[in-house]
């Protein structure tokens, strides 16, 4: 197998993993919330683990979502000036933006890694389930790093092609409204 093919295979595997986390993280969060309220009202018994697991889900969802949101071009930005530019200028902008952003994400990933190592070294645990805390926050460096990789891919795509790409997979972040609009001029 060519190394680049292997890379894209891994990239797709990671994509599926991110998608899995975002989908089932939300479903699990809902299940925990609903389960806890039923247990509390029907059996007068609170699940004391709900809080910690929910917090864990929020962390993994947020950080693994960074890279997935880049893939699908969903990160929020102020696009007022970008939208006014022609395609060449947009491409140059995207080259700068993706390179700088990826460097910042790699930088943060590095420091997040140091923070994880420190936490592991001193052995902080969660308050009720006593899970090592580093296992919860390790998703921060991983997510930030994967986000950096996505912006590097965006950078390459914009350098190579002659069109402006918002991410490696998406051209634009806008969606048209899903309704038949009557003509208006207000």
């Amino acid at each position: 197998m060519k190394p680049s093919n292997l890379f894209f295979k891994i990239n797709n595997l990671i994509r599926s993993f991110e998608k899995f986390i975002l989908t089932y993280g939300i479903i699990a969060l809902a299940a925990l919330t609903v389960g806890n309220v039923i247990s509390r009202r029907a059996f007068n018994y609170s699940w004391t683990f709900t809080e910690e697991i929910s917090q864990f889900i929020l962390v993994i969802l947020t950080f693994m979502g960074i890279s997935y949101a880049i893939r699908v071009g969903r990160h929020i930005r102020m696009s007022a000036f970008y939208d006014l530019m022609n395609e060449t200028a947009q491409r140059i902008m995207m080259i700068i933006v993706s390179l700088v952003t990826s460097l910042i994400l790699f930088y943060l990933a590095y420091h997040a890694g140091l923070y994880v190592l420190e936490t592991k070294h001193f052995g902080r645990v969660t308050p009720t389930l006593m899970v090592p805390f580093y296992l919860i926050i390790i998703w921060a460096p991983i997510g930030l790093f994967l986000g950096g990789v996505q912006y590097i891919l965006t950078f390459i795509k914009n350098i190579k092609g002659d069109e402006a790409w918002l991410s490696y997979e998406e051209k634009s972040d806008y969606k048209d409204f899903d309704v038949d609009l009557p003509p208006t001029d207000n």
Binding site: N44, S46, T48, E51, P127, T128, M130
Partner: peptide
């Protein structure tokens, strides 16, 4: 009995 008591997050207190 059945009293919902709020405590700090700690297994021992629970």
């Amino acid at each position: 009995e059945g009293f919902k008591m709020r405590t700090m997050t700690s297994r021992l207190l629970l």
